[in-house]
Design a protein around this nucleic acid. Structure first.
Lengths: 152, 152, 152, 152
DNA sequence: TTTT
DNA sequence: TTTT
């Protein structure tokens, strides 16, 4: 259902290290701040202005572990996902709202270690996918493999 | 400059009427809430869950006036723009943060009045553009008109 | 791997019915032409010009069957996918190239039958996903169900 | 008008140098091939497969000149634009079709010369824009400057 | 070949 | 607060 679209695409730099948190049962979530910039010239003064926007990026499970392993503060990354509003209780008892970018796909744009070569362009995987992937003899990294030759 | 990307694309329904505010000098800004839905089936219980995300959409100047004129509560619209964090002072004196979607392009997806036929697929125009458009004998609606003089 | 991005997003109308083709083994592929329009005003003559672009849309497997079942000529649809070049042998023996849009996600924008309510916003599913969906007692429609066990 | 969307977003590497062509009247067009990759693991054989897609990128006028000046074979770039079908006459007299990506926005992702720092994240400008920009005391590079202080 |  |  729905007929709606909720899509965010960012290229930016990590403002801090990736923080990962594990839940009971093995799920995990990683978070990091991502900075994007816009630059424009003030028409009155003629001076160049750079403005930074910070985005709360959230990644889950296998993708979270990959980000935690390979991304560092300052790295450039492309992330694609959806906007999600999260509300939480402030210390003063009031409800606060935060907008997060929940990642569905990403690509590292800083090339550092050759070891990370084969983990890029990761897609968020659901638990069912991961299960089947781990159990299979050859675990495909994403969903782009040709499905024609697949035995199910 | 920058080498970064900050892009949001939404298809959703207006949760309320468009509110427009005029500034001295003639600039204006319009705001409306936009709802997107995600639907999934809870694997434990088997029940279908619909979750709604609300987005603070912000439109400026000419585009704002078109939205205010043609969009109503419940209408479906495609908007494209960038994420922008705005901070404001709460009543308790604390700084609060809101994430907004600043619209650069949009398309109406609810077709109601034939009069709106020629205002769709509006692109945000910079002041310089608008100036030249108004002054010219024929005001192009977007940036694609330049191809007229090119032989392909 | 790769550090590249290949993304297409279209909202358009089907120019013809969906044609589906089944392979041995049960895989299938569906194709349909999708029209997008641009409109601009010729600056010389002042006349309004509408230009149509046609896109070769390709969908696979379960998503293909849903499109074939619910989409008809003239319907409006949002599709998201990747550009893919396909080459084929012309009758004259020369190699020809066609660019296709291979769909990863889509949303119906024409609302016709209530029966299609629960098939929209389909994501291309990998074989492993499909397997788990069909075999499981509760078939998740997309990848968002994993959040059930997470406390936020 | 239109209610349609035609959007392409690519991150890839230039497969060749930028070729620019000037028309009478000062307009110009630049072209270059852009490569994107997808990588997947063949589940039968277990071998990793990389597939490259080539895109015909087309840029116009000021943006074309910037690309010609700062982009070289092998550079990584983000381009955003629309799909456009062009037909031409083959040597055998038959009509051939080519799909091009007409760029509306781009960002260099290879950082080479500091001199290019202030030309990135360029947006395609229509002739009217360029005219007004050049004539103004301070020419904004794109449309993101704050419009609040503008006299209309 | 679509749609407004 | 929207929509299906």
């Amino acid at each position: 259902m729905s007929g709606t679209l909720n899509k965010v695409m960012l290229i930016g730099h990590l403002g801090d290290e990736v923080k990962i948190h594990y839940f009971e049962g093995g799920n995990c979530i990683a978070r990091f701040p991502l900075a994007t910039n816009e630059t424009y010239t003030n028409r009155q003064t003629g001076e160049k202005v750079t403005n930074t926007d910070w985005h709360n990026v959230v990644v889950r499970n296998k993708a979270a572990e990959i980000c935690e392993k390979y991304l560092s503060k300052g790295d450039k990354v492309y992330v694609e996902g959806r906007l999600k509003n999260r509300q939480w209780q402030g210390e003063d008892g009031n409800t606060r709202y935060t907008t997060e970018v929940h990642v569905q796909d990403f690509t590292f744009l800083t090339t550092k270690k050759e070891s990370m070569a084969n983990v890029q362009q990761m897609q968020e995987t659901s638990p069912s996918q991961e299960a089947s992937k781990v159990s299979g003899p050859v675990a495909p990294m994403d969903e782009t493999e040709e499905e024609d030759d697949l035995p199910f």
